[in-house]
């Protein structure tokens, strides 16, 4: 029988959303598979989360260790390696923690590795078929993973419909005793919070958001003029911040701000999942992009194939003359 172990990250005593997304993912891997939640940490927080998870999972494994109080991926990897069976399928979220943990875990477990999976198409013999994207979401691919000696799979958060936390009436098994020595070559020091900027993009109902399509720093003015005419605020994708053209507090996405505007104008933004991960609350999305195949058009409400450097000034003029 297929044995699936889902690693559950948590913060401040509550499991992350992905905890409710794993069950649907596992149904698509193999409806007959067994599913066990795995949590690592220490203290009351860990106990509370483990107990909470018994509402969704029949089996919950708890690994408690003082050194795991902060989820340092190097230590978590070793703990999982000590506790999980070698031929297991291990699910991890494809986020900054999962990216830190999972590739190395697959090597240590000598298991197949598949990253950032958005869907599963089931198991045939020892071959699991999965779906992922490449090239920033421009294309999809089918991938097969030989799971005969297990697999480590990161799944894209938000890709699987959340189940309702029910009353699975599961039980918690404490496997802390199986953990051998944890490595000490990487030590967590502290979290440095992101700087607060002078504009709070999360407060604006309308965002004119620019991406790499803005091409040059001087062109940002064009977006500012449009934003002014609309009574909106300028936000951006990551490359604009990497280039230091706008401050980090204006970046929308998983490694930036989460915004919930009424209207989101995506100007020259391709639509990567890390960018869209910061656009919440189901806004009306307008995408202007010169590439008719840009992935952003799959999620936008209205799409326009134009050069933003020509289109934005014309739109600004038209709005002003209303």
């Amino acid at each position: 029988m297929t044995q699936v172990f889902a690693y559950i990250p948590f913060k401040n005593g509550s499991a992350e959303d992905v905890a409710l997304e794993y069950p649907e993912a596992v149904k698509k891997i193999d409806p007959a598979a067994s599913l066990t939640a795995v949590v690592t940490g220490s203290g009351a927080d860990l106990d509370a989360v483990a107990q909470d998870l018994t509402n969704t999972y029949k089996e919950v494994i708890k690994i408690s260790h003082a050194d795991l109080a902060y989820p340092n991926a190097e230590l978590v990897r070793k703990a999982l390696q000590d506790v999980l069976p070698k031929d297991a399928i291990v699910l991890v979220p494809h986020d900054t923690f999962g990216m830190d943990l999972a590739p190395g875990l697959s090597v240590k477990m000598d298991a197949a590795y598949a990253a950032d999976i958005v869907d599963f198409e089931g198991i045939d013999g020892t071959s699991l078929k999965l779906i992922r994207q490449e090239l920033g979401g421009a294309v999809y691919t089918h991938v097969t993973a030989d799971i005969s000696s297990g697999a480590v799979i990161t799944i894209r958060p938000g890709s699987f419909a959340p189940t309702e936390a029910g009353s699975a009436g599961g039980k918690v098994t404490d496997k802390s005793g199986e953990v051998k020595e944890l490595p000490a070559k990487r030590k967590f020091l502290e979290i440095v919070e992101a700087e607060v900027g002078d504009v709070d993009i999360t407060k604006s109902d309308v965002l004119v958001s620019i991406g790499r399509g803005i091409e040059e720093q001087e062109n940002i003015e064009i977006a500012q003029e449009l934003a002014e005419a609309m009574g909106a605020v300028v936000s951006c994708s990551r490359p604009i911040v990497d280039a230091k053209w706008l401050e980090k507090s204006r970046q929308v996405g998983t490694s930036g701000q989460t915004v919930k505007p009424k209207v989101y104008m995506a100007m020259g933004i391709s639509g990567s999942f890390q960018h869209l991960g910061g656009v919440k609350g189901n806004p009306f999305i307008v995408a202007v992009n010169k590439n008719p195949k840009a992935p952003i058009f799959q999620v936008a409400d209205v799409g326009i194939v134009e050069d933003i450097l020509e289109f934005m000034p014309e739109l600004t003029e038209a709005i002003k003359s209303q």
Binding site: N72, D95, T96, F97, R186, K187, F188, L189, E190, I191, V192, E193, A194, K248, Q251, T254, S255, G256, Q257, T258
Partner: peptide
């Protein structure tokens, strides 16, 4: 890490 925070190690 998420939100643009930085984890020092």
């Amino acid at each position: 890490i998420e939100g643009g925070n930085q984890e020092m190690n």
